[in-house]
């Protein structure tokens, strides 16, 4: 959301700057740039007329279904963006207790170390998200050889990560493990 906001603000500021430069150049009234020509150059007259016409159509209730759907969609998107704007940002660090935090990279490293202990796992991908409540949200994707029992590997990985994390005391509030089959020639480890 922050990136989206930044893009919108950058575009808005770029537009305002360009408009400001135009206004400055035309305000000097140097031939052929005259201030009275600026609305025509920018096409503001046509824009105003189109807008006035459209507002008239809306006021008279002469909209077709597609236009109504578009307006509803715009309003809906605006509402969603507004709600997202009110949502507080996700914290960067994982909260352990009051006033104590651990970085996501440490949680990721430790989770990776735990997953790599499983013999069936050839490669793992760990994603960690901090939450406003204590504990991290950990998503693990473990790659195994084709034909392995995915269900037992999944529960094995989950148990191992939970044990390992509780040993070190790293709080994990949400742990998800996915197992996918992969070609051993394309994974980090071929044999364990």
């Amino acid at each position: 959301m922050r990136i989206f906001n930044k893009i919108v603000v950058v575009l808005l500021l770029a537009g305002l700057t360009a408009l400001g430069v135009c206004l400055l150049v035309y305000a000097l009234n140097i031939d052929p740039y005259r201030l009275e020509d600026l609305p025509r150059v920018l096409g503001l007259g046509v824009f105003y007329e189109s807008l006035r016409g459209y507002i008239g159509v809306v006021e008279n209730g002469n909209l077709d279904v597609l236009e109504i759907a578009t307006l509803v969609l715009i309003a809906f998107v605006g509402l969603i963006l507004l709600l997202l704007e009110f949502k507080p940002p996700t914290p960067r660090r994982v909260r352990m207790q009051r006033g104590t935090y651990i970085t996501r990279s440490v949680v990721e490293k430790e989770a990776n170390a735990a997953v790599e202990q499983e013999h069936e796992v050839l490669q793992s991908n760990v994603k960690v998200k901090a939450q406003r409540k204590p504990g991290a949200k950990v998503d693990i994707t473990a790659s195994v050889r084709p034909g392995e029992d995915a269900r037992s590997v999944q529960s094995g990985v989950k148990n191992r990560v939970q044990d390992y994390m509780s040993e070190t005391g790293i709080p994990v509030s949400n742990l998800k493990v996915q197992v996918r089959e992969a070609d051993p020639r394309q994974t980090e480890t071929r044999v364990k």
Partner: peptide, 29 residues
């Protein structure tokens, strides 16, 4: 465990923090 370690550090630092809030971040192991 790391939370206990962090809490112990926080308590030690808080004694010297002149009433300011104290935060401990475990950055690496």
């Amino acid at each position: 465990p790391l939370p206990a370690l962090a809490e112990r550090i926080r308590e030690r630092v808080a004694q010297r923090a002149q009433g300011r809030a104290t935060t401990v971040v475990v950055e690496d192991v």
